[in-house]
Amino acid sequence: MTPTSSTSAFLDDPLLMAIEALPASKLLTQAQVCLLLECTPRWLEEQRSRGAPPPYVQLGDRMVRYAVGPLREWLNRTIDQAPTSPSEQRKRAADETLGFNEPILRGGRRKKLPTDTFGRFIALAQAADEWPFVLKGPYGRPIDFISALTFDVTDEDASVWLSLEAFASQVSRALLHEKAERSVKGIEKVFSGREVPTRDGDRL
């Protein structure tokens, strides 16, 4: 999708640019949309119960997804309508009809990425600088949020902002857990179908 004039004010936002590049049929989890909008899951739930945007897709009784196409169109309209001056912001603050009581929808309070790519973040960021991630798998291995937009993400995979320092710690913890799991599986494979000796020579 080619960015329209309504998104021109956000052409320097890597997250929104990544959304622009996705296929319209791509489905995002609630956690991904929460990070993108800097809103809470409860706010999205309340919006759904009211029949208010952003548009969503109900898959079964409990699974909710957000199709990129309708979400992108709504974002474009939202950005185009976003208040720019303090007086406009105060006027919009009481406008519940749009449901805009959250970040980018309220005058650009959304977190600003410290650089335009994850690679530059790793190379140039300070310890406290933050980048968005998806915590993938049972041990929460952090994956660049923008790259993860092209992956299959489940409701169990959290979407979070991590500082460079926290990212390094999370990677280390995840790798330790994964290494321990591989070790356990290796031991189980070695002794699969065998009798395991005990200390006194008896067999298990």
Score class of each variant (00 low, 15 high):
155 D>A: 14
192 S>L: 13
198 T>Q: 14
75 L>Q: 00
171 V>S: 12
166 A>C: 09
27 L>I: 06
116 D>L: 14
135 L>Q: 02
113 L>F: 13
13 D>I: 13
159 S>P: 04
169 S>R: 15
64 V>S: 02
133 F>Q: 02
150 T>D: 10
125 A>M: 08
177 H>V: 06
184 V>Q: 10
4 T>R: 04
165 E>W: 03
164 L>T: 04
69 G>N: 01
89 Q>R: 12
162 L>Q: 01
77 R>I: 07
48 R>K: 11
160 V>D: 00
62 R>Y: 04
53 P>I: 07
114 P>D: 07
112 K>A: 14
1 M>Y: 06
18 A>E: 10
124 L>P: 02
122 I>H: 07
173 R>M: 08
81 Q>R: 14
155 D>P: 05
151 F>K: 11
121 F>N: 00
70 P>V: 01
90 R>K: 12
179 K>A: 15
146 I>A: 01
16 L>K: 04
159 S>Q: 09
152 D>T: 15
81 Q>K: 12
144 D>H: 06
117 T>L: 05
73 E>N: 03
120 R>K: 12
142 P>W: 03
88 E>P: 01
140 G>S: 10
158 A>N: 13
122 I>Q: 12
133 F>D: 01
126 Q>T: 04
14 P>S: 12
199 R>A: 15
15 L>P: 02
52 A>F: 13
188 E>I: 13
96 E>T: 08
178 E>C: 02
11 L>Q: 12
